Simulated assay, not measured.
Amino acid sequence: MAWLAAGEGYEVALVEGRVTARSTTGRSAGRQLKSLPKAVREHPETDRLRRFTEWLDRHAASCSAQVDAWMVSSLPVPTGLLARVWPDEAWRAALRDLVVVGDDPDQAGFLRDVTPEGEVRLVDLDGETVRISPATVTLPHPVLLPDLEELREFASELGVVQGVDQIHRAVWHKPADLAEKATQVKDFAGGRYPSRFGLAARASALGYRVSGGYATCRVRDGGSTTEATVWIGEPYWDGDSETGGLGWQDADGRAVTLPDVPPVAWSEGMRMAAALYAGRTVEEGKDA
């Protein structure tokens, strides 16, 4: 980014995401300063750069959240849209190296580039660069990827670091021997917190919605919407609290029996319940 005048004898610019100053006079002219002089800290140009930095952070977070939503829902994304956003560094950081599938479900690869014409370039499991031009692509949820372990191993070999957690996302596959009429999973029930507020705060910090006495996670899966819910205690209770059972409900609020929970909704619900349980108070000592 270009250097901007910030008062007599100084210029400022964004360097690696922070406002940096340099002197324009004397023997130190052109040298970057370790800290901002008072006159520079209070200059309007510095304030504008700080606010621009904050906007960039919000923009990057928004891009990541949108890509995560596409991936969790396995929604088809128009390649024309990817071509339009790809030049944006924040969008590119969120999208690059995600596993993408085109028209052929057997042809998956790590996204490396999208041309202005909508050509998508992938690196497949053979290490080959593949060029496809479908109308839409899918960013599959990892529970739907049949070659997940191979993709993880190959990503490690390539040194792939994804901006949005996809292939290394914790996944749970639904067991085949679930009781026909069961509606709750108790695996992560009983995680005790000193207060209900602390439990609700952890749910919110992890990105989950808190509604009434529940932490919830809504997933669009296979054309339907399913919401996973974990009981976290009465909203105004000021004593200790603990995680309850995990259940799912459909768009009309009806309980979904466990055998009927879609695979992505199952995995994301279990992921939420496990994350809440992981923050519990763990007692130490021989009587724990």
Rank of each mutant, 00 (worst) to 15 (best):
Y236C: 12
W248I: 04
Y193R: 05
S211F: 15
L246H: 02
R209T: 15
G245S: 11
A205V: 10
R202L: 14
G233N: 03
Y208D: 04
V210E: 07
Q249S: 13
G247I: 00
T225G: 06
A228D: 05
A200P: 01
D221M: 08
E234V: 12
I232Q: 00
W231L: 02
E242H: 11
G222Y: 06
A203L: 04
V230E: 00
Y193M: 06
S224N: 15
Q249A: 10
A215G: 01
Y214M: 10
L199F: 03
V210R: 03
R192P: 03
D238F: 14
A201S: 14
R218G: 11
T229R: 05
R196G: 12
Q249L: 12
Y193S: 01
D240L: 05
E242P: 01
R218W: 14
F197C: 03
R202D: 06
F197N: 08
R220M: 13
Y236S: 15
S241W: 03
S211G: 10
A203H: 00
G212K: 10
G222D: 03
W231V: 00
T243I: 02
R220K: 15
T225S: 09
C217L: 11
I232Y: 00
R192Y: 11
G198V: 12
A205S: 14
E234R: 13
S224C: 13
S224E: 15
T226C: 15
T225M: 06
R218F: 05
G247R: 02
R202M: 07
S241F: 03
G207Y: 08
Y236I: 09
A200F: 01
D240W: 08
R220E: 09
G212M: 11
A203I: 09
P194W: 08
E227K: 12
Q249C: 14
V210Y: 04
W248H: 02
D221S: 07
Y214E: 06
A201P: 00
V230S: 00
T229P: 00
S204A: 15
W248L: 00
Y208H: 09
A228N: 05
G223E: 06
G223D: 14
V210I: 09
R202S: 04
G222Q: 08
E227L: 14
C217P: 02
Y193I: 10
T216H: 07
W237L: 10
Y193W: 11
G233Y: 04
G198T: 05
T226P: 03
G239K: 12
A201W: 11
Y214G: 00
Y214Q: 04
L206G: 09
A203Y: 01
V230M: 00
W231S: 01
T229A: 13
P194G: 12
W231G: 02
G190R: 11
Y214P: 00
G239Q: 12
A205R: 14
S224P: 11
D221F: 07
R202G: 01
Y208F: 11
L246Q: 01
L206D: 03
A200D: 05
F188W: 08
G190F: 09
S224T: 15
G245F: 03
V210M: 06
G244W: 02
T216K: 12
A203Q: 02
R220P: 02
E234F: 13
G222S: 07
G222V: 10
A205H: 08
V210A: 06
E234K: 14
G191P: 04
R192V: 09
A201F: 13
P235D: 05
V219N: 03
